[in-house]
Simulated assay, not measured.
Amino acid sequence: MVYNEKRDKLLFCKRIKEPYKGLFNFVGGKINPEEDGFAAAYRELYEETGISEKEIELNHMMDFTYYNQDCYVEVYVGYLRREVELKVELHPLYWLELNEDFFNTSKFAGEGNIGHMVEQVVQYGSGVSGERDSDRASINKDNSLTTKSLPSEDMNQLGTLDKNSLSIGVDGCKGGWIVASIDHGTLKIEKKTSIEEIVTYYDGFDYFLIDMVIGLPSGKEQIRPDMYARQIIKERTSTIFPVPCRQAVYAESIAEAYEENVRVLGKKFTPLTVGILPKMQELDTFLQEHEEYKNVILESHPEVCFARLNGKTVLSKKSEYEGLVERVQILQKYLPRLNANDLMQMAKQNRCNVDDIVDAICLAITANLAKQGLCEVIPEEPMIDETGLKMQMVIGKV
């Protein structure tokens, strides 16, 4: 998708052969084996139009997979930096006004896909922020992702990142944990298999926040921070799961866990809680066996942190594309080079949900703010469980 320098026209080719003969389509071509998508996009654009990398910056906006056609499509978008003399390779080229009905399948190829892509740019922007390609977020061979923050003078009034610290944010995922680290201003995202692997790899961190229960109640009189968190995000209280008692977490079966929770706390817990019982046990066991990390690895909650970074509760669901984009835009206030589509691609490669990655980044940013004294603990005077763990959450200040 190529916009002119005034951003009021889109570049199309008119196909002279099938498929879609006689219809307008975006320029494009095939990605060669072992070729990077960005490299292919710039190469095909130059071959089809004569537009070089010096004259446009492309952003990876979205992907389509057509399983019944065994076809995978990557979509890139950009704005020309200056007027360019087009060079036709095969299909004639045309600049079309933005008031066209791009969903008109008698004029445009793709069964409505062109209209959908244009609408995405209208609603959410192109993702092009003016950075050099060498500074964009990049997915590495080990499926980790790195991106640099902007210099502090380019950040907005919400705050700047501490460029002299190592801050860690962790969220559980299928098969392990997603770790977002902000190391001296550079974000890196990786998947690790265990808590022990995380602390070994990131030895020397300044602040470590995790979206997992720390401090397990052993009786009704012990109050966790969950009730305080629910008061902050009253519209999204369902995202804060009921925490089981210590006896239930270490039960030998789910049936026994339910029985123990009813016996100790007088209530059951939800099926969603059942899914994270192994993660609760892993983290608690690690902390019991490594006293030096007790009350050093700290609990937080992404939705509460997003509310604090945003100034109000984020009502959209991060499992949906719109919710993902909204949260990435909040995080871009601190890491402007984040891109929703890069995160989606990385989630596929790491076989995790993209919201696991987004949550980990949110906690890493909050950890960085905590290092600067810009966070608070709820409740202000937390209770302590029977093993010495504080039952608290670290969140951003109002």
Rank of each mutant, 00 (worst) to 15 (best):
D8C: 15
K9I: 00
L10P: 02
L10Y: 03
L11R: 04
F12L: 15
F12A: 10
F12V: 09
C13P: 00
K14E: 05
R15I: 08
I16A: 06
I16L: 10
K17G: 10
P19H: 03
Y20D: 13
K21E: 11
K21V: 10
K21M: 11
G22D: 15
G22N: 10
F24D: 00
F24S: 01
N25L: 03
N25R: 03
F26N: 03
F26C: 02
F26T: 02
V27L: 03
G28I: 03
G28V: 06
G28L: 07
G28A: 12
G29N: 09
K30A: 14
I31E: 07
N32W: 12
N32K: 13
N32C: 07
N32G: 07
P33I: 11
P33Q: 09
E34S: 15
D36E: 14
D36S: 14
G37W: 05
G37Q: 09
A39Q: 14
A40I: 13
A40Q: 12
Y42D: 02
Y42R: 03
Y42S: 03
Y42K: 04
E44F: 06
L45S: 01
L45W: 01
L45C: 07
L45R: 00
E48V: 08
G50I: 00
I51A: 02
I51H: 03
I51L: 06
S52E: 00
E53A: 12
E53M: 12
K54W: 09
K54M: 10
I56E: 04
I56A: 07
I56F: 07
I56S: 07
E57N: 12
E57I: 08
L58N: 04
N59G: 02
M62N: 07
M62I: 10
D63V: 07
D63S: 12
T65G: 03
Y66Q: 13
Y66G: 10
Y67H: 15
Q69V: 08
Q69G: 04
Q69K: 14
Q69L: 14
D70C: 09
D70G: 13
C71D: 12
C71K: 14
Y72T: 10
Y72G: 08
Y72W: 12
V73A: 03
E74Q: 07
E74I: 04
E74N: 13
V75M: 01
V75R: 01
V77K: 05
G78A: 04
Y79F: 10
Y79N: 10
Y79P: 05
L80A: 02
L80T: 05
R81K: 15
R81V: 08
E83C: 05
E83V: 11
E83H: 10
V84T: 02
V84W: 01
E85D: 15
E85F: 04
E85L: 07
L86Y: 02
K87N: 05
V88I: 09
E89T: 04
L90W: 07
L90Q: 05
L90S: 11
H91G: 00
P92Q: 06
P92N: 09
